[in-house]
Design a protein around this nucleic acid. Structure first.
Lengths: 190, 190
DNA sequence: CGTCTATTTGAATGTACTCAAAAGCGGTGG
DNA sequence: CCACCGCTTTTGAGTACATTCAAATAGACG
């Protein structure tokens, strides 16, 4: 069940056959094996990536060297170091495949040229960014007002597919708790 | 020490006298007394607001009726229900003055017309949004990886001015802790 | 001065974390 | 096919941190 990027975009905007092929022409394919890195700290980030198949995580290391997962991505999702991508500064993140993965890479420069030719695409990417902003806000609020158990339940509801595919300790990390705690929560719920 | 919106914008982009007066022409002034509401849940949100003088908070009520403060704003900051403003859906927030305040109101439609006449302004507001995105992310990470005490210290460092002006229980609420806890943390630090 | 609201303090409770060890699971090589 | 190894998950006991509830104190404002 690989994801189709044209379907994905067509959910928001209508595209002619010509526009579809124009868009396809600026994409490149990227394949990654499990544990391979797509982005490393220090790099500049010229691309964002659409996940056709597989699963990835974006994380960073804090001053004490602890990992913190910022996002997961599976089929039909986008991933990158968006902060670095938007601000054109060096990345602070690791983006790593947790399964063998197939991605489509979208170059910023080519994309901006496409905006000029077909402004409709700008609309799509603006909507995508707004959506990301709104999700981020939900995650903040959920982390401030809720217990570990509630956050885990929210997570299961929002991302059921990820909950099935990703390991306990990755999910715990994403939710800001210890694997032991998540294990106890799950036991409790069963 | 009221804030000057033209200075504020000039920190990011260069403006001619003509552009400055064009921009001024689409602003309106709004005054609020302490405890007055600028935005209520259910309203559509056509404006964003620049704080010339005073202090406000944006909060919402969860299902249990508990308040959660999403942001503060003092001189030189922007406030609104940005989610409602961007998505054109009814607001879920209260935006309330915590001091007598003077604001400049910026209407979305007028702003979009201005973008067409002087695209430079679009650049400013895109930068502003990107900045907001980045700050949101920092706040998430800080809430996931840090203790109450560390989050409070971060807050003092990031927003020293707000820490001075805003009451204990508002800050505690913003940081997702109880006023009693913040009180103990402060005692501890002294 | 009195009232209302905010802050501080105390004691008991609860939630999540730490550290340590055991059990489970998957892949590899003999 | 089985034994072993490394990694993940589970379980237990003790500890730390934050919350709850209640009461006392301090401050702001009419």
């Amino acid at each position: 069940m690989p994801a189709d990027i044209i379907d994905h975009i067509s959910r928001e905007i209508d595209l002619s056959e010509l526009e579809k092929s124009e868009f396809r022409s600026i994409l490149s394919e990227v394949s990654l094996h499990k544990k391979e890195l797509l982005i490393k700290p220090g790099q500049t980030v010229q691309n964002e990536y659409f996940v056709v198949e597989g699963c990835l995580r974006a994380y960073y290391l804090d001053e004490q060297g602890n990992k913190h997962i910022i996002q997961f991505a599976i089929e039909d999702w986008w991933i990158s170091d968006f902060e670095a991508f938007f601000t054109n500064q060096p990345s602070k993140l690791y983006v790593e495949a947790i399964e063998d993965s197939k991605l489509l890479s979208l170059n910023r420069t080519l994309l901006e040229e496409l905006y000029n030719r077909i402004p409709k695409f700008e609309r799509f990417f603006r909507l995508k960014t707004t959506g990301a902003f709104v999700s981020l806000r939900k995650r903040i609020l959920s982390s401030l007002e809720k217990s570990n158990k509630e956050r885990y339940l929210d997570f299961c509801e929002t991302y059921p597919e990820i909950e099935k595919r990703v390991q306990n300790y990755h999910i715990a990390n994403y939710l800001g708790m210890k694997p032991e705690s998540l294990s106890r929560i799950r036991k409790d719920l069963a």
